[in-house]
Design a protein around this nucleic acid. Structure first.
Length: 597
RNA sequence: GCCUCGGUAGCUCAGUUGGAUAGAGCAACUGCCUUCUAAGCAGUAGGUCAUGGGUUCGAAUCCCGUCCGGGGUACCA
């Protein structure tokens, strides 16, 4: 049993015996003692004053006395400003360290065949443009969330819905037909997703120009937007595609293939993957059928212009369009179809959608609609709603070129990592291949940590003018600590010193060492909390704190040069355990750790 | 207008279910490498937790009002 739990129960017991009133042990407030105060755990006694009818100091002292007599692990206690600070015995902490050290799966709960199955949807790109920083946040959060859920004993299926059809890709297709001059990724050397994205931008340029010309001739802006030749042509392509016109479908397939090849490269660099990928072109008709079924069953209504609507006013929401008057699908229709296919394919206990908070309303509606359509799981689908990445001048807009491109960003960071490493000369002796791997590890570590350390729900700021830091509260700082420990461990191996927990349990440890073990012992609860609150940031903050404490220890203590063999072995075990947790925690964020840097 | 999320140091962010003197990093300034990696460690300076009220032993945290900002708001995704 955890010491915290023991204290809670003993305090409840003490209150009963000393003051004659039963209280709920779970309600007893036990927290970690502040750093600047002596002690390990603090019991908040204020809620008991009404029962004890004594001063905070006296109450705390009486309870402290009781604890010390009744609980072996309680070594001493002190009372400061009415707070009861309890000091736990060193042997307890050393035992905690030994357990963490020997458990290769420390902090994790393994899934079994009976464990709940969680499907996590993330990424969900459109196929008309390359990935940007906003997608990076989505991908990193989605991947990390999957790892967190796995670490918490869930079976996880990572999935992606590729929005491969619709007016957006038709715009790129039309631009390529008109002005493409037969360009391909092969004959231009341009990455496929970027090439298609270039045509999307080109479309918009022409479209805007046409609108201007029409307005100059006296049309209203709204009319011009509807009547511009480019948009009419793109709509015609969409219509032909839905009618399965062979030439159009072929063009669509070709350009989508270019994009997929490009995405694959980006996903691989980013280190994310999927167990099952769905395509909107396969799901939108299923959604349409579901909507029509709903119409027949009287859940939805058809208007005079043939459009189909859901009336959600009973749920406090508005009317929602499900099929346009021309019979074509909207975003919502497609999501209904995708959901149906997924739940046919897997025995899903919980569905999680990693999608930005700009779509909060959409998922509220989706949940209600799925419920109305009779899907039992609709009501409690979970929208993992994360904040946007903002630039100093505002939102990212693809068409206006104010995006931070994912590939460019990663490549730029690898260069910074290379430069820094070369200046410091840390990788001398590595082959070019080994060195490049390390640059990538560091660069991606910096990027991923930068994004994941922020509370997912909040918007975050990225300034492209300032490169992402490699010092301080950063990924490389954490990786560096890992590399230093690995270096010590390699040296220990050379000297034949093996980390083992056969040190004398009565040894005296320093305050910093005790502090470190306490932090180590918090890892399992941290992993749990991160998964429960869907927040990789909880892990990020924990690992940073752990590493910061370790660096202080490292600075003040010798490990291999320590003369006392007992202490030397203890410190090696301590260091090894910290390295294990750093690797494990970073792994939960999809961040690798280097042997050297 | 309505709905919704947010506002903590110059900048970027932490701050568990309300607990002690609100913490990190960056930027600025100052020290520490003949000893296991200085991408490190230590220190100085920096705050009316947007604002006004309320709840109570105690509020950055909970409730209400106001100001400011993001997002959404019926044929975009």
């Amino acid at each position: 049993m955890l010491i915290e739990q023991i204290i809670k129960e003993k305090i409840a017991q003490a209150v009963h015996q000393l003051y004659g009133q039963e209280i709920d042990a779970e309600k007893v407030q036990v927290e970690n003692t502040r750093k600047d105060v002596e002690g390990d755990l603090t019991v908040v006694v204020f809620p008991f004053l009404r029962i004890s009818r004594k001063s905070p100091e006296q109450t705390a002292n009486e309870l402290g006395q009781y604890l010390q007599e009744q609980v072996d692990e309680v070594a001493s206690y002190s009372v400061i400003k009415g707070f009861l600070n309890v000091t736990i015995s060193t042997s307890y902490w050393i035992n905690q360290l030994a357990q963490a050290f020997s458990d290769s799966n420390y902090g994790f709960t393994e899934a079994t065949d009976d464990s709940p199955l969680v499907m996590v949807e993330y990424s969900s790109p459109n196929t008309n443009k390359p990935l940007h920083l906003g997608h990076i946040r989505n991908n990193l959060l989605g991947f990390s969330l999957g790892e967190l859920l796995k670490a918490n004993g869930k079976r996880v299926v990572k999935t992606n819905i590729v929005n491969d059809r619709g007016i957006h890709i038709c715009k790129s297709m039309y631009a390529w037909q008109q002005w493409g001059e037969g360009k391909t990724p092969e004959n231009t050397g341009i990455k496929g997703d970027h090439l298609v994205g270039d045509f999307y931008v080109l479309f918009d340029k022409h479209y805007k120009q046409e609108i201007e010309e029409l307005v100059a001739k006296g049309a209203s802006k709204e009319e011009a937007e509807q009547q511009a030749p480019s948009i009419i042509a793109a709509r015609e392509l969409l219509r032909k595609w839905e009618a399965k016109d062979p030439e159009t479908v072929e063009l669509w397939q070709m350009m989508n293939q270019w994009v997929y090849a490009g995405f694959d490269v980006t996903y691989k660099e980013l280190g994310v993957d999927f167990d099952k990928i769905y395509y909107e072109s396969d799901t939108y008709l299923v959604g349409k059928d579901e909507v029509l079924r709903g119409l027949q069953e009287g859940i939805f209504t058809r208007r005079d212009d043939q459009s189909v609507w859901a009336d959600l006013s009973a749920d406090g929401l508005d009317q929602k369009l499900l099929l346009r008057s021309d019979g074509t699908s909207v975003y919502m229709t497609q999501d209904i179809g995708t959901a149906k296919l997924r739940f046919n394919d897997y025995q899903i206990d919980r569905m999680v959608y990693v999608v930005g908070n700009e779509q909060d309303y959409h998922f509220k509606v989706l949940s209600i609609l799925l419920d109305k359509l009779g899907f039992s799981w609709g009501k409690d689908l979970h929208h993992f709603s994360y904040g946007m990445v903002e630039l100093p001048h505002g939102k990212m807009k693809s068409r206006e070129g104010t995006v931070v491109d994912a590939d460019d960003l990663m490549a730029g960071m690898v260069e910074v990592a290379r430069k820094t490493s070369e200046e410091l000369g840390k990788l001398d002796g590595y082959t070019e291949q080994e060195a490049l791997e390390t640059y990538k590890t560091i660069a991606l570590g910096a990027l991923k940590y930068f994004i994941l350390k922020v509370d997912p729900r909040k918007n975050m700021m990225f300034n492209p003018e300032e490169s992402i830091d490699f010092n301080g509260n950063t990924g490389p700082f954490i990786q560096y600590t890992y590399a230093r420990i690995r270096s010590v461990i390699r040296k220990a191996e050379e000297k034949g010193i093996v980390p083992a927990i056969d040190f004398d349990q009565s040894l005296r440890i320093s305050e910093k060492e005790n502090e470190l073990i306490k932090t180590i012992s918090l890892y399992p609860a941290t992993v749990q909390e991160a998964a429960d609150s869907y927040s990789p940031a909880v892990v990020a903050n924990y690992v940073y704190n752990l590493v910061k404490e370790y660096n202080q220890f490292y600075h003040d203590h010798s490990i291999l040069n320590e003369e006392d063999e007992n202490i030397r072995r203890f410190r090696l075990v301590l260091s090894t355990t910290v390295a294990q947790i750093v690797k494990s925690g970073m792994g939960l964020m999809g961040i690798r750790v280097p042997e050297r840097m």
